[in-house]
């Protein structure tokens, strides 16, 4: 299986599969977040009972982390190689080739999302599952409350919203590109896959984006 490292298509394949896996995770995460808008109790139940420090949740976290690690490492790996392949000298006249902005900036978008991820993990995951697992003082069971606290400051909300915007750009290219790389495309499906990708990215990112705003404005926990 060394071709997954040595060949360009192999590397791209790993990047695509890890990306598609993360897309599935995003869908799940987004759905869970939306619960917060309707009910704090249900949200706490999911956070503590379904996830929490259960063996399955820990295992899933491990797999998820692996997905991130692959996606990030391969992203860096591919980008470095591509910079080398581009050659030392750059064009003096800026490229005027019409392509989508996101396709040209996947690495930068990814980097921004990664920085956001650090903040997010510290604010949420570290306070809950991580502390619980290692038995660190002050771990939080009241996930809904924690979330409400985090999103009470405006700058956090703005950072999160910017991250979701980046994610949207990242996904609009990433979705169809991943399918293209695993060979799942042709002249007929090209347009369809792009449309599906755009719709999907919009739904996921809107789903994410609603929550911090709703919390900040006090529109969460609608069912009490």
């Amino acid at each position: 299986m060394s071709w997954l490292i040595k060949s360009s298509i192999g590397r791209k394949f790993v990047q695509s599969i890890s990306g598609l896996f993360l897309i599935l995770f995003l869908l799940f995460h987004m759905s869970m977040n939306l619960v917060l808008i309707f009910s704090y109790d249900s949200y706490n139940f999911i956070a503590n009972e379904v996830l929490g420090a259960n063996w399955w949740a820990v295992a899933a976290t491990g797999v998820l982390a692996l997905g991130f690690v692959f996606h990030i490492l391969y992203g860096v790996f591919l980008t470095l190689q591509n910079r080398k392949a581009r050659g030392k000298d750059r064009y003096a006249s800026a490229s005027k080739t019409k392509t989508t902005w996101s396709s040209q900036n996947m690495f930068v978008l990814g980097l921004f999302i990664l920085l956001f991820l650090g903040l997010h993990l510290y604010q949420m995951w570290y306070q809950m599952q991580f502390k619980e697992l290692l038995g660190i003082e002050g771990f939080r069971h009241d996930s809904a409350q924690l979330t409400a606290e985090v999103f009470s400051s405006l700058w956090v909300v703005i950072v999160y919203e910017l991250a979701f915007l980046s994610l949207w750009f990242h996904l609009t290219h990433g979705f169809w590109s991943a399918l293209h790389t695993v060979g799942w495309n042709n002249t007929v499906w090209m347009k369809r896959i792009k449309v599906i990708g755009n719709v999907f990215s919009t739904i996921v990112c809107l789903g994410f984006a609603i929550v911090p705003i709703a919390v900040y404005l006090g529109y969460s926990n609608l069912l009490g």
Binding site: K12, N82, T97, T100, S103, T181
Partner: peptide, 13 residues
């Protein structure tokens, strides 16, 4: 790959 061409990222350029 051996000749040093890069990895395609489907920019479509």
């Amino acid at each position: 790959d051996e000749l040093g061409f890069g990895n395609c990222t489907n920019t479509g350029a």
